[in-house]
Design a protein around this nucleic acid. Sequence first.
DNA 1: ACAACAATTCATCGCGTGTAGAGTTAACTA
DNA 2: TAGTTAACTCTACACGCGATGAATTGTTGT
Lengths: 196, 196
Amino acid sequence: MSRTRPPGRRPGSADVTREEILAAARATFGASGFERATIRAIAGKASVDPALVHHHFGTKESLFAAAHELPDPEAMLAPIFSGPPAEMGEQLTRFYLTLVAAPGSPAVSLIRAAATNEGAARMLREFLERGFLGAAERHLEATEPRRRLALCGSHLMGVVFGRVILEVPELAEPPIEDLVAVIAPTIQRYLTGDLG
Amino acid sequence: MSRTRPPGRRPGSADVTREEILAAARATFGASGFERATIRAIAGKASVDPALVHHHFGTKESLFAAAHELPDPEAMLAPIFSGPPAEMGEQLTRFYLTLVAAPGSPAVSLIRAAATNEGAARMLREFLERGFLGAAERHLEATEPRRRLALCGSHLMGVVFGRVILEVPELAEPPIEDLVAVIAPTIQRYLTGDLG
DNA sequence: ACAACAATTCATCGCGTGTAGAGTTAACTA
DNA sequence: TAGTTAACTCTACACGCGATGAATTGTTGT
């Protein structure tokens, strides 16, 4: 049982390994946060030498950034905001809890890392500001759209935190639709209702 | 300019140093999170040798626990829950944003650390479950009290995250009372209103 | 076929970390 | 006042980390 592969380039597949490293990075960062995740652990999970990680992605910070390249928020949110206004709260809540708050999601990894790593916090903040809040400005026909979506985001982020990170039973156990039923009216009010 | 103090016990004050270490620990953990905060940095801020920290508190984990001994939630919440039910939402929101979400608060430090450190997450979860949610059960005259307070907590925690950790402008800039005005109605609905 | 290049492992460096033990001085007790 | 205990600093060890440079092997262009 030879534990280590022979050195030198591997036959066949070009950037398969690269993707495997990124997947391992997402998993490890997500499970441990930025500082606790080690390049050695990521390399191990990808069955690869630690130096290869560094060869492909440079520093640990830029590996994190590469592993968390965020999708275009415009494309994500457009379907929600183009539907009937009365359903936006429910749509947004379900979307968020299904896609973003799923355990193992890159978003959870980002949130976790953002709590202690300034770089990750900046990434998340800029994504929220330019993308999320920006999309609101373009699609939301109401006063103070950015403030409205900031309130929505804060609530939904708190639910993620309680459900996936803290694992408070009251938030972690119920199926998603149960949470949607309770939270969506609040989100709807923040989006289209009377503030304050 | 002699940088180091002579060895041996210091004259006078017994447990002053101990408190200084705890204060430095709170500040450092709060600013950097659990893993990034180093015992050396904490000792430095307390003008003390790193080994003394270890002498007093043992491991880093138990130093963190000692620095974040949480107040009795019963005492904290009783005044709020014993007032007029119609004002509970506003009271709870203001209390939380003023005391807990203040930058530099131990609670922020706990939340930050909980994102990446399982021990801190357990501390926070147990505090929330036994204390916060427990207090709700005893004081809240409504159906599903624990679920109600879990919803309140998740929203408020999300606001802390956005305001203090991510520093999203829409949440970080407005004075507390502005946020109270918008959020309190939601909290009130979660506490006493119709769920879902 | 040959040269250039990219992918990969290996060996290792330097650093900062948490922690431990030994030595020194003050406070406490009888 | 003698002896014990507790507070405190010094020195240092062992470990794991991120990062680097060289060596090895496959791919690609000509």
